[in-house]
Write a protein that binds this DNA or RNA. Sequence first.
RNA 1: GGGCAUUUAGCUCAGUUGGUUAGAGCGCUACGUUCACAUCGUAGAAGUCAGAGGUUCGAGUCCUCUAAUGCCCACCA
Length: 965
Amino acid sequence: MENISSRYQPKEAEEKRYKHWEKQGYFTPKIDIKKKPYVIVIPPPNVTGVLHMGHALNNVLQDVLIRWKRMQGIPTLWLPGTDHAGIATQNVVEKMLSKKGIKRQDLGREKFIKEVWRWKEEHGSTIINQLKKLGCSCDWSRERFTMDEGLSDAVEEVFIRLYQEGLIYRGNYIVNWCPRCQTALSDEEAPHKEVQGNLYYIKYPIKSVIGSRLSVLGRTPNTEHRTPNFVVVATTRPETMLGDTAVAVHPKDKRYKNLIGRKLILPILNREIPVISDTVVESDFGSGAVKITPSHDPNDFEIARRQSIEGILVMNPDGTMNENAGQYKGKDRFECRKAILKDLKMQGLLLKTEAHQHSVGHCYRCHTMIEPYLSRQWFVRMKPLAKKAIEVVKKGEIKFYPQRWTKVYLNWMENIRDWCISRQIWWGHRLPVFYCRKCQGGGNSVIGYRLSPNTEHRTPNTDKGIIVAKTKPEKCPICGSSEIYQDEDVLDTWFSSWLWPFSTLGWPEKKSKIKNQKSKIKSDLNYFYPTSTLVTAPEIIFFWVARMIMAGMKFMGKIPFKDVYIHGTVRDDLGKKMSKSLGNAIDPLEVIKEVGTDALRFSIVFIAATGQDVFLSKQKFAVGRNFANKLWNASRYILALPECKWGSVTNEDLGLKERWILSRLNQTVKEVNRSLENYRFQEAESKIYEFFWHQFCDWYIELAKPVQNSQQSTVPAEGGSAFGGKNQKLKNREKNASVTTAAMLYHILETSMRLVHPFMPFISEEIWQRINNIKNQKSNIKNTNQISKIKNKELGKRSIMVAEWPKAEERLIDKKAEEDMELLIEIIQAIRNLLAELNIKNLEEVSLILIHFPKRLEKYSNYLSRLTRIENISYQSKKPTKAISTVVQKTEIYLVLKDIDLSKGKKRLTKKIEELNKELERVSQKLKNKDFLQKAPREVVQKTKETKEKLKQEREKILVMLRGI
RNA sequence: GGGCAUUUAGCUCAGUUGGUUAGAGCGCUACGUUCACAUCGUAGAAGUCAGAGGUUCGAGUCCUCUAAUGCCCACCA
């Protein structure tokens, strides 16, 4: 027997095992056309990513599913990869360069991109290596990157097809603009956050009263929003007033009705702007008059578009004011705000300031406040794509787990808005769009200062001089000019992600490949698409899940996956989202160092209730650590037993505890399967935990242990030594049975390891290999029993990873054995309770008398003696005169000993009687209720009656006991 | 403004279609270390299932309302 440490040392085991698995190619599925594969595509982490707890949870869940299915013999593919993460990655590389004092503009586009690729080569595999540390069994031979050649080709293909169908268009529109990243963002990339701001009330003079009197009049205190001389507007962003081209009021607003059509003087710039009317203006918000800034506000843009009002752009892409801002030119937007307020105050035009909470978009990459900004961008028309994506979810072809996310998804889909896909950054897929300089007569995505909104907004693709193609055309097809240049923009990162389930599998396939199908060699795309399950976080539903469904339907004509499991967000113990920037993150790698990967995996799954957020603290990893330790030590014990060989076992040999533990094991397998099928990971773990620890270890192993002082055998026999076991027959039986018990210990342990493996891959492999070694040493023993056969077949394999997932065998589920065993357990616990309560230590002096103990269980009295340490047990019908007593079901339990303090026992019994009376009262009331008798199902009534009888009997017995005291 | 979730033992959370006396882990109390495991064992204490009303023979579970907390969505000038 090798020396095994009493503590599991995860470190050495993990790396060694993972490398072995990878080398053996276990992660790569063997394509078998007859079998339906199980496929998960990983939510590709950003190449810049560093493993955090969110990743850990996400990927462990996927690995559990994958390992579970793989062990079932299903060709299983977990396709990994990383996302080029346009803005995020560009930011990281820019930061790195800035440390050297280099700006990306200094390098120029081409050199900068080279830098990013270099960075990717150097650091891009960090997250991948960390996933390996987690034990993820991804097929690394199929690893993809969203900027791989094939995936880039898919991106271009999709862009071109959508453009040709008119589902992609270019237009001028207000977009979410991040002044720090200097790019447009989609709505999803600009989440709204509540901000405590101010609502500024500004007086706009009416034209007829301008002139020298302005400043004088302005000083008059006036709380009215409308005075004969001014119209007051309310705004949260005063700096945008420089771009005002109108003021709008509701057409029915009596205060302003007669001003509609008149001119106001825009303060500071002294530009004339008209008062217009529009029904979207709400009279009771602010002053009821809205300044209209078409180039800096989506609502204003819409109003202006309807009424053909021009807009004026007053900011530069970096958030500073441009030349249209007059004296404020060059000032940052917030500085400008301060300056304008100061100036307005001086002129007496700032009527009042109110605190005002509102929600404002923020860049999801750098958290800078978004500026709604008019620019020329590319959009995907989403409504036509959404239609089928709504259908497949409504029909249940795609199911969300937990179900409630279905509604969130549908709600978003049904109100979907066009998707801004162009980004003004360098790192990403460049738009496959070319312009003929002659036909266009202008630049691309130029941000115009005086764009008339209505002309180019969402018009069909009739633009002359736009050529959408994978490669640069030599000549313009219209005018023949060779002055052709490519659009500078790149696509939104998610424009490649939404193709992930099929672009990673080879879409669009070359024709030659498709032909191969006939020769029975299925392409990856044909074999693995649609995938099976997608595991992701709620915040990704809109970004990714929804769009993948749209793309899948559009380009594959099939759903991309069947099930979507949405897990919770990882938060700290105070409920804050875990993030590096908040400084509350627990580093998974730290946890792995401290407790091991398996403990981390087990714990995080155990803590994560289905779809609920996960509240983490370091202490919570103790569950997994302790469980790993338990697995380890139980194995250590079993593996060290000298008798432990794979013995021959026949069904007749099986004692109660064997039938019981087999029944429990098979029941557990059944339940674990059911839980996993419903994505109830935590439940599956609980079942395994409960079985292994509290059934196998607490009872089976304990019962399998040698009786103290026994010289005969280290593994006890059925029938046990409590009654001597002296005759030859019993001795033979004992020998035989000890082998049974030993074989059973092995069998249960080995099966448990396979059950544990998806959750705790390393320790299960480690233990399983050790079992394997012993088996190989003792392979001379014949196996005559089915249990042993199953076991040995599995052990022939080189890794538990590819061993067979345990099958629940109905024939081994034995309700009777479970009932009997449970009764024995209850009796043992009751006896222990008495012993503990009365503080009885001298067990030799105690004799145990059981009355009404089932005859068929008498041969298992060794269970009682072993686990209560009382040797002197007898069954009789005569009640002892002086004894401490209690009742379990029908069995009366008496402890007879010399000096007993009966008063203590009396107290207990009295208390018990009280409890019984209460309960009996409740049940009796129920049975007196005519409605209950009539309306409740017969079984329930029957059960209640039985309960009453049981309670009554128990009470009777206790009363008799009490009388005896 | 709309939607979703949560509220069960001191703490963190289970509780699948309504059906005996509501469970676990941690913590707590007592005892225990020649025993595979003190990262352990045995025993124990601990809950008005957020509140109110309703449906039902029967509600932690279903319905309505209320409160607190958290999250998501929305063109909140």
